[in-house]
Design a binder for these strands. Structure first.
Ligand SMILES: Nc1ncnc2c1ncn2[C@@H]1O[C@H](COP(=O)(O)OP(=O)(O)OP(=O)(O)O)[C@@H](O)[C@H]1O
Length: 748
DNA sequence: TGGAACCCGATTTTT
DNA sequence: TCGGGTTCCA
């Protein structure tokens, strides 16, 4: 047996060596599950003699896939992992579908619609069905449809099960949406998983072929697979049963996306005589961190009890940071980073800052910049979601897939070609009449009886697309994009505008261009336009890591899953933020699992921080410390002063506060239930007061604010629910607040 | 047609 | 507070 297996403990090694038949590794955080998968693949190749292309490994993110490939390369010779199939469910099946999708009536150059594209298509469907987004929010429809798809509930079944009025409406949209996707020759994210099932069902020969090809199937983070993923995996493994899954039910944090722990719980029933291995040694964190994690997760009722034992000593205590507001919180985080760097010589890359919602990143980001701490935000506004990038990509999508009307509509008047709504509607009518796609209608514009001005604009557009198409056939992706930039003058337009925003866009477009270069360099055999588009459709900001760069990582807790950092800050530990407003006990348990994930990312030092007040929707809100902090053994926590929490004067916990009046604060404005202290707000509308408002505020009025303290009104703007007051606070300076939310108390 | 002025709702979390 | 969407006007 080869020596790399030395890097495993006994149970891990057994799991690696059990190469045949169904195997599940069920174990807590940091117990080396991912290592087992990695080594098992290396073992299959090196010792069992399996050819890399016969192994399919599915991960949760592209980043995890990249890292796994790298590590396997590290164990074996360089390049031996290159023909392995490693990727997310989505990227692997997108690639496979390109070879087979013609069998189920799509063109191989199908477009992949991201969430924004899907929503815009849904909006269109709703418009056609006369459903107003006010009564039925697009986001809700989108998530309902996506949830259905992820549970493999297709429109007919959805329709049958739709009882209440709302789901019946959703059902109508769903049906039309699916239809339109097909018209666009497009798949949305969920289709990338559903279409393989359709394909396998309708063409069993294809399934058989793939079953013979993917002789070994391995799945990481199995606890977060959804029903469709489960079904696809089952189909592929049906013959040989060589399915190997690893996961931790305590880290299931994607149930809102259809992830279903029962996939894990039923593994034994689904695959007869499956072997199950449990790893108990944690190699990542200090005992302190692990004890904290264990005490938190033990509060969940729905869980498989698992042992998890530290392999190192207690280490440093957990530090609780309490701050006046979120700015101060961020400042303190920055201070701690600098002081640890100086005292311990830690690199920036050793630090990670986590938060529950993306909105929290802004303040942290500002503070990092102010303190000249290099940082990188993962997620937030993805590069690929930027308008200019989406526009450029839409052009390329249309070039590849002329039925992609979604993309056509996006760029037909960008840059402006004087083709406005009116013209577009005419074009749509014409297309409908002739039963053509929008692009075909554009090509045949001269037969549409349009004004010659419009015909010219449309033909000009068509010839650009046609020229790009020829370029795509003859040249590289780089050539196609260059042609777009040159013909439309996109870059020079932005340069001329010469605002900071336009220059940033200019830079982004340049960046996209250099990405096409890199892409050609890295994928010699598969560098067509289609390959490029498929890759970037499924890529996200979360994927990039450059080991060489040295920066502090900022990300949501969700994005942190699977990662580890020596020093971790979990910020925003406040009631209603983390845990985020949860109404059902099940949701609270998922929040708790999320907290468990956050804690267990830390190797040597953990900070938990919270702020007494925080701006939300531009208004300061009082915050209470998260109950989650009370779920950690107070002996493990010290305050910034170094005092043990268990010995500190008892903090009033959020639960003890519940029901008790807190001065001047409802945590957030409660719609339709104004707190008694809020100055009564007159309903907007016909009875709007005119003339000098009978406001309780006048310049000079002395007021008290829950957070900013005492102050004097300087100015009153507007009236009614939108009334704002400018106040000079004794300690906090000048602020303009909305009366409705400010919870001001008039004093004196 | 396109820009500017306004209004309103949003914050979960991501492939 | 911010950004998307709508409305209104040149
Ligand atoms: N047998 C071992 N000996 C030494 N270190 C190990 C061993 N197994 C794993 N590790 C180390 O422990 C850390 C956690 O391993 P890994 O990421 O594989 O755990 P995991 O179970 O996938 O964690 P999580 O579920 O939290 O993502 C890694 O730094 C890894 O290198």
């Amino acid at each position: 047996m080869t020596d790399f297996l030395q890097g495993l403990n006994d149970v891990q090694r057994q799991a690696v060596l059990a190469t045949e038949g169904p195997v599940m590794v069920l174990a807590g955080a940091g117990s080396g599950k991912t290592r087992v998968i990695t080594y098992r693949i290396a073992h299959l190749i090196r010792n069992v003699g399996v050819s890399p292309q016969n192994i399919l490994a599915l991960t949760f993110t592209n980043k995890a896939a990249g890292e796994m490939r790298q590590r396997i390369d590290g164990i074996l010779e360089r390049g031996s992992a290159s023909s392995l199939w490693i990727g997310t469910f989505h990227s692997v099946f997108a690639r496979l579908l390109r070879s087979y999708i013609h069998l189920i009536g799509y063109d191989r150059n199908f477009s992949i619609f991201d969430a924004d594209d899907s929503k815009s298509l849904i909006k269109q469907c709703m418009k056609e069905l006369n459903l107003s987004p006010e009564t039925l929010p697009v986001n809700l429809v989108h998530s309902a449809i996506s949830k259905a798809k992820n549970s493999f509930v297709l429109p007919p079944e959805f329709h049958r099960k739709a009882i209440d009025d709302q789901s019946q409406k959703v059902s109508l949209v769903y049906e039309r949406y699916v239809h339109k996707l097909r018209e666009n020759n497009a798949l949305d994210f969920d289709d990338l998983l559903i279409k393989p099932i359709e394909l396998f069902t309708e063409h069993p020969a294809v399934l058989e072929q793939l079953q013979g090809y993917f002789k070994y199937l391995l799945i990481d983070e199995y606890q977060d697979t959804n029903r469709v993923q489960y079904l696809v995996a089952k189909m592929i493994a049906a013959q040989h049963q060589n399915i190997f899954v690893v996961g931790d039910d305590a880290q299931s944090i994607y149930s809102w996306r259809g992830a279903d722990i029962t996939n894990m719980l039923n593994f034994n029933d689904d695959y007869g005589d499956a072997q199950v291995f449990k790893l108990v040694d944690n190699y990542r964190s200090t005992k302190t961190i692990l004890d904290a994690a264990n005490s938190v997760i033990s509060r969940n009722t729905r869980q498989i009890k698992k042992e998890l034992v530290a392999n190192s000593g207690m280490g440093e205590p957990i530090t609780l940071i309490e701050a006046f507001n979120e700015k101060r919180e961020a400042e303190k985080v920055a201070d701690h980073i600098n002081s640890i760097r100086l005292s311990k010589g830690a690199e920036y890359r050793s630090f990670a800052i986590f938060y529950r919602t993306n909105a929290q990143s802004r303040v942290l980001e500002d503070m990092m910049r102010q303190n000249r701490i290099p940082y990188k935000i993962f997620g937030s506004v993805s590069f690929y979601k930027r308008k200019e990038i989406k526009d450029a990509v839409a052009y390329m999508r249309l070039v590849l897939n002329e039925r992609d009307s979604e993309s056509l509509l996006r760029v037909i008047n960008f840059p402006p070609r004087k083709i406005g709504d009116v013209s577009i509607n005419k074009l749509k009518e014409f297309a409908e009449e002739r039963n053509m796609s929008l692009y075909e209608a554009v090509v045949h514009a001269n037969e549409g009886g349009f004004q010659s001005r419009l015909v010219n604009a449309l033909t000009g557009f068509a010839s650009l697309i046609e020229a790009m198409r020829q370029q795509a056939e003859a040249g590289t992706v780089y050539d196609v994009l260059s042609m777009l930039y040159e013909t439309t003058g996109l870059l020079s337009l932005l340069k001329e505008e010469n605002t900071p925003e336009s220059l940033a866009r200019h830079e982004n477009l340049q960046e996209l261009l250099s990405m096409t270069r890199d892409f050609a360099d890295h994928n010699h055999d598969a560098a067509t336009l289609g390959d490029f588009l498929a890759t970037i459709s499924l890529a996200s900001d979360y994927d990039e890591t450059q080991e060489s760069d040295n920066y502090v990582s900022l990300m949501t807790v969700h994005a942190a899953k699977g990662l580890e950092f020596p020093v971790v800050f979990v910020t925003g530990m406040e009631e209603r933020l983390f845990p985020l407003n949860s109404y059902e006990p099940g949701e609270l348990e998922e929040e708790r699992r999320l907290f468990y994930v956050a804690i267990t990312r830390a190797q040597t030092k953990l900070f938990l921080s919270w702020a007494q007040s925080r701006y939300m929707y531009g208004q300061p809100q009082m915050c209470l410390r998260s109950t989650f902090i009370n779920e950690v053994d107070p002996d493990l926590i010290v305050t910034e002063g170094g005092r043990k929490l268990s010995e500190s004067p008892t903090k009033v916990s959020a639960s003890a506060m519940a029901g008790r009046p807190v001065f001047g604060s409802s945590l957030r404005p409660q719609p339709g239930r104004p707190s008694a202290k809020v100055p009564t707000v007159k309903p907007a509308g016909s009875a709007r007061p005119t003339g000098a408002a009978k406001s309780e505020y006048r310049p000079g009025t002395r007021v008290q604010h829950a957070i900013f303290g005492p102050g004097t009104v300087l100015d009153v703007q507007g009236k009614g629910p939108k009334q704002k007051v400018k106040i000079n606070f004794r300690n906090a300076g000048e602020k303009t607040l909305m009366v409705q939310y400010a919870n001001l108390k008039v004093v004196g």
